[in-house]
Nucleic acid binder design. Sequence first.
DNA 1: GCTTTGACGTATG
DNA 2: TCATACGCCAAAG
Length: 117
Amino acid sequence: MTQPDDYARIYAAIAAIPRGRVANYGEIAARAGLPRRARLVGYALRHTPDDLTLPWHRVLRADGRIAFLAGSAAFQEQHQRLMGEGVMVRNGRVALAQFGMHHDLDRVLWGVAPRSK
DNA sequence: GCTTTGACGTATG
DNA sequence: TCATACGCCAAAG
């Protein structure tokens, strides 16, 4: 039962990804209050209104890989944009350990509660 | 109204 | 790493 503002929250969550960092679809969904709805994030991203500009290139799959078919135009552009802001991409994959949202600093920036306990 | 299609994720083998 | 399988579910046909 998706509501109109679900998309708004998804877009907001994406817009909140700090420059030089990345997040996966699942994280975005969770941030938007829609746990386990990663696919909806993909859908929303594919249908982003023209008047809306988002850092869509910072959204990757859970394993750190770019979601597009390797070699495709979209794939290359995403790769380009990421490198452009300092995010290293190796064989279509980003090292989440370095650029993902798993450091304490990120929790501060994102206001995410510490893991467990 | 039923089936197919995804910028997905986790779990197995 | 590849391959299934399943959970998830809005849109499109």
